[in-house]
Design a protein around this nucleic acid. Structure first.
Lengths: 342, 342
DNA sequence: GTTAGCACTCGACGCAAGAGAGTGCTAACA
DNA sequence: TGTTAGCACTCTCTTGCGTCGAGTGCTAAC
């Protein structure tokens, strides 16, 4: 059987209607809803076909039809309209300039959640590819030194390192110069063993400190990186009855709190990059078990050279895909602009 | 009417039983449960009295009784037994030494949630009273300097400040020395105007930088302070049917996500300090609207001199008060010990 | 003061009946 | 040949009703 133009229109109408109401939609509704001027009986025939083809399904005989995952997929891939709606206000909310990455990301998650009424998450740009701008060691007290690392985009990391031998101010200054001259401008995964041994050699007596520092930096950055995901609007899932039952809600909220699974999901997105940077997972397409009854839309954003992070929006399968995609597009460009001004 | 020993025992039995089952408890159950050897009829009479006195109530005629807020209050105040249970494992989980305050607090929240099966929150020690250990300004690039502040307990804060005039390395060094000599060892709320103007004077040409720095520091610290609350185990509320209905669950989860209200709650605790540092809010006693159907147990902890924070546990009114209080006690001492080792 | 017995109350559960929405099928129509 | 009207059928959801059982309050006896 072929999916002709009329069938497409009917499918589209079914989906649109279902997105709005969340109720199974019947043939009669469609017959009025569309401008096709067909009777409900004709629609019924077509809908039977669509069901056979797997685009829609019936919860039970004598209920209306609801879109299947396959149906949503077709809709998202070919039938969506771009909307340029009231996405404008977001701009203002973000523009209050944030100098701290963390606050910025929190804010983005919040704005998105308020704007879309879905649950949102955002991962911080991966630090590993991020270039080092500045390193400084300073003595805090006799036994500890503080290592401050600033990377592109003014992301700051601190690490307190214990030291055994006393270090004079002079040595510390030397070490600072050494570290900065060698490492400045490099991305974290560009630091290789050769470079490290070279620095150790130049550090002479204090070679063990150099490796301590580098180890600690790598360690600290990696450890934090895994968890840097900000979420907002979790409780929006209660707006959608199909997600709000105890079992599902509990699992979802747990997923959002634990963040680890979110990390995998967002990572997955970066892997499957498709050009626009926006990706839609419908129902069972998500790699995360607890989201089997949801849809997830993710977008990668880029802050300058190679600093990539991911934003995700989680909602019911009858999510307003058009709006969500439009909103994510806006955010993508917003973040881009914001960085340029910095 | 007077609350004699027998009535107390019956009340206690009602509460204990209700804590376990969550179901209204009837006279017959009590008559077997206790060692009083009274028939159900006698218990019924006593229970009627207890109800009249306001300690228990009936959801409807011909149901068993459940404790009222007043009943719980009496229980918590006078009838609880201290339990020294399997709180030991916690120790091990915390002992993996954390050098970062943030990670430590996250871990505490998580351990508590796992251990008690309730939702938990913990606020970071108030930085305002915390003593400055070390300040350092460094140039990141032409237009920005980075201010790093380390306070007692190795809490590190960063702020990136924009500067207008070029600053030479030399000036920066002078400023660093100036700031450190004046401010080292002071708590944040000990920095007064006189001191600031003195420093400005000494800074000469660069007096505006000094005030910039101080403003920014105060600002940055205050802003972050409000939000530094870590939560865990939010989805535990689904374990208790009386909290798990959509309306309540949604509100609660929202409260936990927004954190602001939690802040007020925790602050309130610090105000009403009562010696042990542990406080129990039952039902409508909480200052937070959305927790009217919950009980909240809070504890203040102290890391060294004046660095106080608060831990809170939120659960149903039929919370296992004994265990929760015992657990919080343990955590209090754990945190204390942990700091001493630092 | 304590207990046994009994009538009463009230929610939970199950069942049946009826309403309503929607379908599939058939036959008529353009 | 595609479209439509009509009709019987299916299935869910709601409502009402009767029953069951847990638990109570009250009274009378011990």
């Amino acid at each position: 059987m072929e999916l002709d133009e009329r069938k497409k229109k009917i499918l589209q109408a079914v989906i649109r209607n279902y997105l709005e109401t969340g109720e199974p939609v019947g043939s009669r509704t469609i017959s009025k809803y569309t401008d096709l001027n067909l009777s409900s009986a004709t629609i019924r025939n077509e809908m039977a076909d669509l069901e056979e083809m797997g685009y829609i399904l019936q919860p039970h005989t004598s209920a209306g039809r609801i879109p299947s995952d396959k149906g949503y997929r077709l809709y998202v891939d070919t039938m969506m309209e771009e909307k340029e709606r009231e996405v404008v206000e977001m701009k203002e909310m973000l523009v209050e300039r944030q100098d701290k990455m963390e606050t910025l990301l929190r804010q983005v998650a919040k704005v998105l959640a308020q704007n879309t009424q879905y649950a949102t998450m955002i991962s911080a740009p991966q630090t590993r590819r991020n270039k080092l701008k500045f390193i400084q060691l300073s003595r805090v007290d006799e036994k500890q030194i503080l290592a401050v690392i600033v990377t592109e985009g003014n992301v700051v990391k601190n690490n307190i390192l214990p030291v055994n031998d006393e270090l004079s101010d002079e040595t510390l200054l030397k070490l600072n110069i050494l570290l900065n001259t060698h490492l400045n401008g490099l991305a974290l995964d560009e630091i290789n063993l050769g470079m490290i041994s070279l620095m150790k050699q130049q550090a002479g007596l204090h070679s063990d400190i150099v490796s301590d520092v580098i180890d600690a930096l790598a360690e600290g950055i990696r450890a934090e990186e895994d968890l840097e995901i900000y979420t907002s609007g979790t409780n929006n899932i209660f707006r959608y009855p199909e997600l709000a039952d105890q079992q599902k809600a509990s699992e979802l909220i747990n997923t959002f709190e634990e963040k680890q699974l979110l990390g995998e999901l967002l990572q997955d997105t970066q892997a499957e990059e498709n050009g626009t940077g926006i990706q839609v997972y419908i129902g069972a397409e998500t790699p995360v078990q607890s989201m089997r009854d949801c849809s997830v839309v993710t977008a990668t954003y880029e802050l300058g050279d190679g600093m990539k992070g991911t934003i995700g929006i989680v909602g019911p399968k009858r999510m307003d895909y058009d709006k969500v995609v439009a909103t994510l597009r806006t955010i993508q460009t917003q973040l881009d602009e914001l960085y340029r001004k910095d």
